[in-house]
């Protein structure tokens, strides 16, 4: 394999890895905040992709400009899912871990059904966009513009998230709530409100990822499941709850996936990622940066 081809593989893997990190970080954030794994996370992504598709179909506005609206929509959806479902799941007196798993699993299946009902199981794609189909040629390495856009957005979002967590009252309230849920009530922080905002934020983050992904990926009711497993692996690899871990793990996952596809048939490219994940958690059960 030539050096150029290798650089090509690494560059593509890196960009996809940044997008994986963006998909996964919301999941990690919610877990870090309240120890809940959202098994409908992939379906949140799917909703964001359909929302982008639907808005584009109706308005004809380019997906790049639709991203803020999709993000806002997902924020509302995340907060509503917390207030309408997860809040009650956390009150369960028995089998609380199980209730959370199956309440969010049920939600995932419900969302799949709804999207199939409204959009049919057909594969959809957005065509004639500013970025779609264009590539950037950097010294013989071809990089598709949608992936470059995704990578840049991901870096900007992680930067913004860092500022949000460290510089704002909301970020501090989030951090305080994850440290000690009981104590924050004493200083006048409404736990439910922080959780609802946290779910909104987590969903908004995957909403941005969906708006990016919709530009270059087929949209169908099962698309969430494709990315969900990668997101769980990314989060578990980086360590549940760690934002920085999600970024590092996302990039690793993207690179390993791209390199595996060179060695093995591309239908097996996920095996490299899964094997790496298992190797890491067997040595470090709480992932690379986990705080179990």
């Amino acid at each position: 394999m030539s050096t150029e081809a290798l650089i090509q593989v690494i560059a593509s893997g890196l960009l996809m890895g940044l997008i994986y990190a963006l998909i996964a970080v919301g999941l990690s954030l919610i877990f870090g905040l309240m120890d809940v794994v959202n098994f409908a996370h992939g379906e949140f992504l799917m909703v964001a992709m359909y929302a982008t598709f639907g808005l584009w179909l109706v308005s004809g506005i380019d997906p790049v400009l639709l991203a803020p609206a999709v993000t806002a929509l997902l924020f509302v959806m995340g907060a509503l899912v917390y207030l309408g479902i997860v809040r009650y799941a956390m009150r369960a007196k028995a089998n609380i871990g199980m209730v959370q798993i199956f309440a969010t699993f049920g939600l995932a299946i419900l969302i799949q059904g709804l999207s199939q009902y409204f959009f049919t199981p057909d594969y959809r794609s957005i065509s004639n966009t500013w970025l779609g189909g264009h590539t950037l040629n950097v010294f013989g390495v071809y990089l598709p513009w949608p992936q470059i856009y995704g990578g840049v957005i991901s870096v900007l979002v992680f930067g913004g998230l860092y500022l949000l967590m460290s510089r704002t009252d909301f970020g501090r309230a989030l951090e305080a709530t994850r440290e000690d849920q009981g104590a924050v009530a004493l200083v006048g922080i409404d736990r439910n409100r922080v959780f609802a905002l946290g779910w909104g934020l987590g969903a908004a983050l995957v909403g941005i990822a969906g708006a990016v992904l919709a530009i270059f990926y087929y949209i169908h009711p099962q698309v969430g499941a494709t990315f969900a497993l990668i997101a769980y692996v990314t989060v578990a690899l980086g360590g549940f709850g760690s934002v920085f871990g999600a970024l590092v793990a996302g990039v690793i996952v993207g690179l390993v996936e791209a390199l595996t596809a060179v060695i093995l048939p591309s239908s097996l490219k996920a095996v490299g990622v899964y094997a790496l994940y298992l190797g890491v958690v067997f040595v470090r059960p709480s992932g690379l940066f986990g705080r179990l």
Partner: peptide, 15 residues
């Protein structure tokens, strides 16, 4: 997708 809607709702409600 109606089957999935019924099925998903059932799982959620029982949980």
């Amino acid at each position: 997708g109606l089957d999935l809607i019924i099925y998903g709702t059932l799982i959620m409600v029982v949980a």
